[in-house]
């Protein structure tokens, strides 16, 4: 059984039909990527998973359980955490406070302290700046913080919405390296990207979404070879 499964999901914003019959599976321990152009419905897909937008029809399952009955804040407790598009860190708060808020659902202070240690190991830069106001961090550091904040809950599955957006090439490499490290440590990841080449190189499987419909799904390697995908999303 897949860890996360979207089954024939439709989603609407008022009259706008943003997702049309989307079905996606993520198995435990996988990195799966969802690629597509601007406005294709990638973020909307993540919203239906994290519960901030309820599907108008279709279901989202976590380990076989339908998530429809849970409000968004309960879904976090189930182990699904999202790193939102554009990072959206709490800019007026310090790095440490941001991380603390990431652990909002956790009741175990000792474990939180250990998790913070782990996150600081992963992102030593955050440790150096833990008392700095987050809004003054650089773009790359903010992305680290956004990821660190999400990791505070020790999620079962991590949803990343365009983590490489707006970063310099070196930093983009760093982000993907981090994703690989997290994966190696056992985190399951659903990675939304416009940077299709990097995403497909990192992931094991991939879905391509266009105007709210999944148009391809395959092993990442095969999608990398796919002429259509190459032309449309990798500028070849």
């Amino acid at each position: 059984m897949a860890m996360l499964e979207l089954k024939n999901v439709h989603a609407h914003y008022g009259k706008i039909h943003a997702l049309k019959n989307v079905s996606i599976k993520v198995n435990k321990g996988e990195i799966v990527t969802l690629i597509g152009g601007n406005g294709a419905g990638k973020s909307t897909t993540l919203k239906t998973i994290s519960g901030t937008l309820k599907p108008s029809s279709g279901q989202v399952f976590l380990n076989g359980e339908d998530l429809a009955k849970y409000p968004a804040h309960e879904i976090v407790k189930k182990g699904i955490v999202q790193v939102p598009e554009g990072r959206r860190i709490f800019g007026q708060l310090t790095v440490m406070e941001n991380l603390d808020l990431g652990a909002f659902t956790s009741k175990d202070k000792k474990k939180d302290a250990q998790t913070i240690e782990k996150i600081f190991e992963l992102f030593p830069r955050l440790a150096e700046r833990c008392r700095q106001v987050a809004g003054t961090l650089s773009g790359g550091e903010q992305q680290m913080l956004a990821m660190g904040r999400a990791l505070m809950t020790n999620p079962k599955i991590l949803l990343l919405d365009e983590p490489s957006m707006g970063l310099a090439p070196v930093l983009v490499d760093n982000v993907f390296k981090t994703i690989k490290i997290l994966h190696a440590e056992g985190t399951t990841i659903l990675l939304v990207e416009q940077n299709a080449r990097m995403a497909l190189k990192t992931a094991s499987r991939g879905y391509v979404i266009q105007t709210g419909k999944v148009i391809f799904e395959d092993d990442a390697k095969k999608l990398l070879e796919n002429e259509m995908v190459k032309k449309a999303y990798m500028g070849d």
Binding site: V76, K77, P84, R88, F90
Partner: peptide
């Protein structure tokens, strides 16, 4: 905890919810 939830909500409601805060 409530105070922290308020602080997060004041900063960004959507993200606060995504952190598991019951708005």
């Amino acid at each position: 905890r409530l105070g922290r939830a308020w602080m997060a909500m004041r900063e960004d409601e959507d993200v606060a919810q995504a952190m598991g805060i019951n708005l």
